[in-house]
Design a protein around this nucleic acid. Structure first.
Lengths: 183, 183
DNA sequence: TTGACTCCCATAAATTACCATGATATCCCA
DNA sequence: TGGGATATCATGGTAATTTATGGGAGTCAA
């Protein structure tokens, strides 16, 4: 069962000491980048490190939806989605539209929209998921997929597109660091 | 800030909110320079003094990523990275900026990019880490590595390149002192 | 039946845990 | 203060696990 698989990972990673886990927030940390193969059946292994980050969640799998601004698939944990939903509810109950105030436009409907286009992808016993056809098309993924950790969420890219995108990202950062320089 | 801040561009850029004077700050202190051997499998001992600085962290290991502006590897503690991510996320969640959380349109992107290029390197039972091939290539590291403490973070250099850079740095400093007049 | 999907097993390669050793450095006690 | 006993550290090798990946058998629905 997938439970066993994940449990093994967890034991391995935190072997010896049974330290209290950081249960303070639903935030998982997705770090680093991995490229995996998509097999004939559309299955991909979710990187073990990402699975470990989700090990404490009830739902053993990920929430995936197409990025609205990039040719990529966005991935988060189920707990994160729940948290967003909860906060959204609180926000509307409080009656304060902070988004309107802060960024000059309302985010009304965004969470609902994401919910509606999201896919719940469960791990199989080997920690793989099946990428829905639609999402693969959106991201241009064929037989390889790059998992990109971005902290509280991650993305799945076509390796080629990601390479180009990351190069641009790093160049932009370099430019900023150089131009701003030390104060 | 350290006196070496001329070179501390990268972390300083976003460490404004992570000041050393904070009591519960996740900032460790990395001091001094050590040169260790990289074995055939890419393993290096992290200097005991650096490990001691990270002893109180949950994750026993380091976060490493290639420097954007130097041929070196940057190293920080996991707590530092988590803190950065947490603050960034709290900001967007508390502010009701779900767009940023869901589709990642960060005004900044720095933290997310660092997350994506970072590697989580756990200590083995002897306090070693395995340097990823990619990072070694970036830094020109082959069979020896120089760990350079820089306060809240550290760097890993190829010994030759580090020696050269340090010499250049000293030359520059000497030149500046000369031109400013003798003490 | 076909096709889509889930479960289960197999395996090669990569990763990690585990044990061993020499070299320093540190401590302790007469 | 000498000098052996003890710890720590850096380093090396091997064994055992995990991981990523592939494929087959069974299920369910049209």
């Amino acid at each position: 069962m997938s439970q066993n698989c994940i449990r093994d990972v967890e034991l391995c990673r935190f072997s010896g000491s049974v330290e209290p886990e950081e249960a303070d927030s639903p935030v998982s940390s997705f770090i680093s980048t991995y490229e995996n193969k998509v097999d004939r059946k559309g299955r991909v292994s979710v990187p073990a490190a990402f699975r470990a980050a989700l090990a404490s969640e009830q739902f053993q799998g990920i929430i995936a939806y197409q990025s609205l601004i990039e040719p990529a698939i966005e991935g988060i944990g189920r707990a994160m989605l729940d948290e967003l939903n909860r906060r959204r509810l609180d926000q509307s109950l409080d009656g304060g539209d902070f988004a309107q105030t802060l960024i000059g436009r309302s985010d009304d409907g965004l969470v609902e929209t994401i919910m509606s286009i999201s896919h719940e992808l469960a791990f199989d016993s080997e920690g793989r998921i099946i990428l829905p056809q639609r999402l693969c098309e959106h991201a241009g993924i064929e037989d390889r997929a790059t998992f990109v950790g971005r902290g509280s969420r991650f993305q799945i890219w076509s390796p080629e597109r990601h390479a180009a995108r990351q190069a641009a990202e790093l160049d932009a950062l370099r430019a900023r660091l150089t131009e701003d320089g030390p104060q």
